[in-house]
Design a protein around this nucleic acid. Sequence first.
DNA 1: GGATCGTCGATTGTCAACAATGTGTCATAG
DNA 2: CTATGACACATTGTTGACAATCGACGATCC
Lengths: 244, 244
Amino acid sequence: MAISDLSTRGVDALFDRVPKATLRAHIVERLRHAILAGDIPPGAPLVETALSERFDVSRGPLREALRQLIEEGLVVTVPYTGTRVAELSVDDIHEIYSLRTVLETFAFEQVWPRRDDRFRAELKRRNEALIATIDAGDDRASILTELEFHGLVYEASGHKLLQRAWHGLRGRLQLYWAAHHRAHGRRGPKRDSHDSYIKAAFGQDFEAMKAEIADHMRRGMETTETFLRSMPDSSGKPKRGVKS
Amino acid sequence: MAISDLSTRGVDALFDRVPKATLRAHIVERLRHAILAGDIPPGAPLVETALSERFDVSRGPLREALRQLIEEGLVVTVPYTGTRVAELSVDDIHEIYSLRTVLETFAFEQVWPRRDDRFRAELKRRNEALIATIDAGDDRASILTELEFHGLVYEASGHKLLQRAWHGLRGRLQLYWAAHHRAHGRRGPKRDSHDSYIKAAFGQDFEAMKAEIADHMRRGMETTETFLRSMPDSSGKPKRGVKS
DNA sequence: GGATCGTCGATTGTCAACAATGTGTCATAG
DNA sequence: CTATGACACATTGTTGACAATCGACGATCC
């Protein structure tokens, strides 16, 4: 799996100018990383010329990369006027978590009959990876490991459309979690936050699993919402902040 | 709506160069229409130079339009090799309908407490519009009216992310329905196909509504799957067929 | 002094030419 | 006749320049 490959090499090990496949894909990666890491905060303007210079590419591939990030919900644009990193809002949080509850429940429903030993072992492995990042105090990495933990269910479902939907949610979630991390230092996921989740996943009662998912999501949403409401004003109008 | 506008004036009655908003958006509209109407069948190659000439734009906006259609699942591409209209497959049908069942159930769950008279009236209105197109024998239009009928629930949910997910499903559904229509002349939706659906939607029993949705989807999926399996070979390799 | 209109700068939208890559063909050797 | 290799063609990827549009600032008029 290329995913675990990425997580081991760390978040900012950047290949500078080694076009592996297509240029646009690389820009998407790097821009997404810069946004999700908070290097370019929500609301910050994304000027095409500045970005094309920063990434050392022309505006063509860069524009296409921006379009993709728009599709992912990380970036918003208004024609002839400008492009910015998406802003945060409580309404979005409600939408993200409510839809995520539905999708993750559905994903588990698909996976339920096929929970073999490999699935169980991998779920445990990813939980231990999550705990490791928490113990290490690496909050930024713990965001990724937590997403990978939950991502397993979608991958195991074998449902491509569902995985696609999860991908769209995943980016948005990361945007909020990263902002939380940036504001409070620690986002504060507990070591045992997934214990009951795993227990239910290994059990035989699917209804219990559904309840556990709903509960897990409710807690996550409340945490995120509380954080966002504590923000002074995330809908302010930051002027500049792209260059470097 | 500009869509009905486009459908009435036909595919090649082109406004010659009246940029209303942004060029890319227009190309997306026209390309999507051409694909969903079957003018460019599944598997047909989409050559950028040919399309840019056909639509009288340069390759820049055209490429961006293609990217968007890729996101929507109507088009597939492989780097440096080519772009084609997405092919049809039974696996996709299962994914589309299973996910759609989940999403539409969720949408109804959101709408359930707010089913006021306006909602009921609009649902009836759209059903009558669907019946009108069926009676008129306009199968192509009945695809649109049926999608609009089901679309109401998503719109009424007020859930932007959910609407976005529906949008992605909608295009794919249309792709299959249009192929069905093209192959069999009539796709054959019955006049009363939504009677029980509406009855459940107006009732008080949400569990009954869930069952009705599941049943409706199951029937739709079976119809679509049966059609696709009756196709000689939809995974063949058509050579050319873009120009004109 | 306040409002309105025009102008200027900044930013995105669009275009046509050039480079990189992949695929199929055709000649050639075994 | 088959396999193999090089070559040419078709197609996408990338680039830099040019055009259209928007927002803000400042001058001007009431």
